[in-house]
Design a protein around this nucleic acid. Sequence first.
DNA 1: TTGTAAGCGTTATCAT
DNA 2: ATGATAACGCTTACAA
Lengths: 327, 327
Amino acid sequence: MTTIRDVAKHAGVSVATVSRVLNGNGYVHEDTRSKVEQAIRELNYTPNEVARSLYKRKSKLIGLLLPDIMNPYFPQLARGVEDEMQENDYRLIFGNSDESKKKEMEYIQTFIQNNVVGVISSTNDPEADMYQDLNIPVVFLDRTSNDRPSVYADGREGGRIAAREIVRRGSKAITLMQGPANVRPAQERFEGAAEALAEQGASFQVLKTTSFSLSRAEGFAQEVFRRYPDTDGVIASNDILASAVLKEAHRLGKRVPEDVQIIGFDDILLSSLLYPSLSTIHQPAYEMGREAAKLLIGLIEGERMERSSVEFSVTFIERQTTRKVES
Amino acid sequence: MTTIRDVAKHAGVSVATVSRVLNGNGYVHEDTRSKVEQAIRELNYTPNEVARSLYKRKSKLIGLLLPDIMNPYFPQLARGVEDEMQENDYRLIFGNSDESKKKEMEYIQTFIQNNVVGVISSTNDPEADMYQDLNIPVVFLDRTSNDRPSVYADGREGGRIAAREIVRRGSKAITLMQGPANVRPAQERFEGAAEALAEQGASFQVLKTTSFSLSRAEGFAQEVFRRYPDTDGVIASNDILASAVLKEAHRLGKRVPEDVQIIGFDDILLSSLLYPSLSTIHQPAYEMGREAAKLLIGLIEGERMERSSVEFSVTFIERQTTRKVES
DNA sequence: TTGTAAGCGTTATCAT
DNA sequence: ATGATAACGCTTACAA
């Protein structure tokens, strides 16, 4: 391993000088600079980030905590974060929390131990002590906090839109699937939809679901039609659930969208590939990830941020699981 | 920030003693130990991993390099790696390479700068200098190397199976989609399938594709039926492409599997949610990720590994895009 | 059984 | 404009 001392020796200068050219601060004569730069090139030297991190008490590392990267919605967030960070020379330490507070704490702990300079987290409890006590910037992604920076989509409005669109297209017996109680965005969607449905005087029932996993999804989908056989419209809490419902509708010989309309949430890759393709509420996940990263970087680098949270609006993507209607 | 000195002071011992109880080496009196442990608890101390890493010249960090986490196949690998690492107290620095050598090199570079103790990489060029010159263990995941540890699925055999199954089920004019030329697993699948098709004297044409991205996939799917209108069987190079083909078949009013059979590759979540659900060659991605992590940990911790590479076998998942046949 | 001190590779302060 | 050197928080000889 080649160190700054090797470079100094090779260039015939002190380590201090090498450090100066490396960091571009302090005075250094042009000739000296080029000698040093040449030595760096010849020895193929790159500074040890760990030593830097130790001295400065800050690294170029960011902690990223997501519930489950296997859930198709999160890779887009992750990639958005990663791309923005990469472009700004930050690296990611990544963990899955499974929506579990314990795992979250363990990760936050190790983030700190590794001198990360900021964290991005999709937590259900942004007010938890572990975040309040953190003395580095945190940005909540896909989650809302009242008093801390967050980047999220307007789930409540998404729910309202879904409700309006399905009613407008003629569903009379709507089943509204309510996502896991502890997952905040899922609850907001639900509340928005329930509100709007009620406002419009639509008749609907609620089916509680407790998980977004595929295996469970199929069970919930069956339950929809078993418990509410006359259902002619389903608002699912995400696209996975919606897909499962669509599949179940097929299995039961129901025509979509003629007999049953279905609206999902998220607009993951899958949705456009289904047949019929899934009408859904789109969230700009990749962009949200990027924005969270931007925000965090701003916070880290001490810029005064004009806004500390950003809410993305969602849009209805009309595909084939809803009926056509005059606009 | 509380350091080992604070703990030492609080417990009335030297830092060396604290270090000893922390690491469980050297002699330390039982009474002293409990004093120290109490101090640790009272101060809520956790050791600074950066300082450790600097001194020992090794961290508890692993570099994970994947082509693109938004491609639905990779999250499963990533999660497998993560779970195994997490259980063994290793953390992941994660990056996307987009199959680009330049990005790969940049990441490997920063991995080294951060003292990672091992790397897991899905590269198309395991023999590249950047890997050969690395003096920490590397495991190639989803990719093969002759002389270095790797964890991969038997893509060639997968291609053969796909070919046999589709022929056996009666397709006579098969279009074989060849994945991006620089992506090794894609080429192996292709070669396996082409071989087996030839052996069986089946008639087939090849359509080259250059990307796995969704937007491109739809174009390639259209090309299949435009260029080879009499196609009655498609072997796609992955499930995304297969889904696009399925969708296009729908659009053209072709019945699946009666008019066209389709076989995909990977068995991602999506596949079982499609309608008809997609017959595909399953790779145990999550398990592969775990296995790669296990292997790497063994290498890092200096165990003599009984086998340094593991090949997973693939299986045909018969769903609804292929016809039923007597077994 | 415990403590002192050197050293890991940097950066930054202070001389010169 | 450059060089010595202390310091960052830890581990580990070595001494006591």
